[in-house]
Simulated assay, not measured.
Amino acid sequence: MGTLTSILVLSFLIFFHELGHFLAARFFGVHVEVFSIGFGKKVFSKVVGNTQYCLSLIPLGGYVQMKGQDDMDPTKVSYDQDSYNTKAPWKRIIILFAGPFANFLLAFLLFIAVGSMGVNKYAPIIGKISENSPAFEAGIQENDRIVMINGVLIEAWEDVSTHIQESVGKLELKIERAGSVQTLIITPKINEYQNMFGEIKQKKMIGIAPSGKMIEVSYSADKVIGFAYDQTIKATTLILTSLQKLVEGVVSPKELGGIISIVQVTSEASEAGIVALFALTALISVNLGVLNLLPIPALDGGHIMFNAYELITKKAPSERVLTSMTTAGWLLLLSLMALSIFNDIYRLTNGN
């Protein structure tokens, strides 16, 4: 059941991505010849208007085939009025960007649903306290609940971290202990820590850790939009940072995951409940949007790069450049896909 859910999630994400391209293309009068969910042999097709809508055998992908545009052969063009390549470069850029934008929009809508249904977060209850830390010296004790920092109410542990990092000078903490509220003054210290990429960084700390107790936080209608926006931005930033660390060599290529990892993680999320599944689907949707905007020929970002060049220079790249760069882009993508699948199989066979 989990595997089926994973395939449905991926198919839905791809459909939404391609729908973005489709709607933008139709808006600018470009004829869409084929709208396919999946690759390979067509198992179902129906012509509506002048567009063939189909489901193909391999559901892990999809495409919108526009008149005058072919990813496999960039030299195939059409000069009819309803052709993609006869449209102004800025219109083509919008058509290309519409796919990734649809993924960001979908993630935003999913995060609205997640925020409305309730998010599990660490409660602002103190667990471990480091010896000789500012918190230890101020008299903070285990199981104290942080109620307020510098006059701002605290709902979850992440709010504690945020206020500590944004603080200037001393912190005024109101804590609840044994039914009474006490006020403590604490001055954070700069300490080293290891981030998720294994790098040693510095940040303000007071020497406390969460107890591990969880609470469910639901957002009202006036706050859920802000929550969804923040989560979409955080997810985008995380993916961009991960790509940067991969290029810099901080993250090993062995950490790359492919379709097997996505199916596995999505299956586990579906078993954890609808909120977890929606949150993971939103993250994958953002990932799909970001990756498609990379300036790699054969991806949306690569096509945007070519059209931006034409928009600036007033001339299109030569067929030789288009062909060679597109071929190089496909080779790079196929190599990354092969590496990610190899990593997936290696992790599975080694029990990791």
Rank of each mutant, 00 (worst) to 15 (best):
T51D: 11
P89Q: 02
Q81M: 09
G38A: 05
S56L: 03
P89I: 00
N50S: 09
L55E: 03
K41S: 05
Q81C: 10
P100V: 03
S83C: 14
P100R: 03
N85P: 05
V64F: 04
S78I: 08
V64N: 09
A98T: 08
V48K: 14
G49A: 06
K41H: 07
T75W: 04
K41I: 07
G40H: 00
Y63P: 03
Y84P: 00
A88P: 01
Q65D: 04
Y79A: 15
S83R: 13
Y53E: 13
P100L: 01
Q65M: 10
I95D: 10
D71G: 15
G61Y: 00
T86N: 07
F35Y: 02
P74S: 10
V64E: 05
G38Q: 01
W90P: 12
F44L: 10
D73G: 03
G62M: 06
L60G: 04
L96Y: 01
S78T: 06
F44C: 07
G40K: 01
D71H: 13
D70E: 09
V48H: 13
M72T: 04
F39P: 00
N85S: 05
T75H: 03
D80L: 12
C54P: 02
D73C: 03
L55Y: 01
A102L: 03
F101T: 06
G61M: 02
M72K: 02
K76V: 15
M72C: 05
M72I: 04
G61N: 03
V77N: 08
Q81F: 11
M72A: 09
L55V: 02
C54H: 05
G99Y: 15
P100W: 01
G40A: 02
A88W: 08
G49C: 05
G49H: 04
V48R: 15
I95V: 15
S45G: 07
P74V: 12
G99M: 15
V77D: 02
P100S: 09
F97D: 09
F97V: 07
D70N: 14
F35Q: 06
K67Y: 12
